[in-house]
Simulated scan of single mutants.
Amino acid sequence: MMIRPYEHEDEKSWLRCRVLALLDTAYYDNVLNAKKQYDKPSIELVAAQGDEIIGLIDLELDGQPGEVCSDPQRRGAMIRNLAVHPDHRRKGIGRLLLVEALERARAAGMQYLEAWTRDDQWVRDWYMGTGFKQSDSYLQVYVEGDENLKGMIDSKVPHLRPVSVFAHYTGSDKAYIVSKFSRVHETSRFYLDLAELK
């Protein structure tokens, strides 16, 4: 197994690895049919075993503070994708990808890493175990047609009726939202200060 930069020829195997890695997480339906190209500079690494991609990490970098990440005072790198093929978990591949990516981010002048993740406790534990700290959170809410969208969310376009909605809830009554809708995820921000690492 080797950690190396992503190459265009990796795309099909990259997509397969990502899909399989997300199947048993709260992101199970976040399927891509093409790898995203980033607007800002990026660090895109893979863990390859022969021609097969078994792990991946993508970071998008701030050009100026706050362009990609949350801190308006410091330049950060946003983890856009981080996944390990389920057949290769618990072998330290995610940690190896992270270490290589953070060294490259530091060399590019980034001061911290930022990641957002949903409420899979094992994923949150992994971030905390690698030195990240949790800061804030909000709710991601999936509203389906059988949850009575009528009157709650209306369209201004004649004859266009929402049957499902993906929404962000940033209010204070999280318990109400969780009780009202069947699919709600608490999505939390984690950060890792690169100056604190040796």
Rank of each mutant, 00 (worst) to 15 (best):
S179C: 10
E147S: 06
P5N: 12
Y169Q: 07
W122N: 12
S172T: 15
Q37A: 12
H159M: 09
D10E: 11
L97Y: 13
L98R: 00
L192Q: 11
K180V: 08
P162M: 01
E196K: 14
A77L: 09
L20I: 01
P41E: 12
E196D: 07
N30P: 01
N148V: 00
P86E: 01
D87C: 11
V184W: 05
Q49C: 14
R189D: 06
A107N: 11
D29Q: 11
L96I: 04
P86V: 00
Q49A: 13
M110D: 07
L97N: 09
G63K: 14
R124M: 14
V46T: 08
K156P: 09
I43D: 07
I53H: 14
L98S: 04
H168M: 13
D125H: 14
S137T: 10
K133W: 02
W14V: 02
Y169V: 09
V184S: 06
S188E: 02
Y28K: 15
K133M: 06
W116C: 02
G129F: 04
D146C: 07
D87V: 03
R90Q: 15
E196M: 06
G145A: 04
Y127T: 14
V157N: 02
A83F: 00
K35H: 13
E7I: 10
G55Y: 05
L61D: 03
A115L: 13
E186Q: 12
E44S: 13
S13H: 02
V68G: 03
N33T: 11
T187F: 08
P158D: 12
R89A: 05
S137I: 11
E60Q: 06
W14L: 08
T117C: 14
H185P: 04
N148G: 03
Y27T: 10
E196V: 01
S172E: 15
K180D: 07
D125M: 08
K40V: 04
G76W: 02
M152H: 02
G55V: 06
A26F: 03
A175N: 05
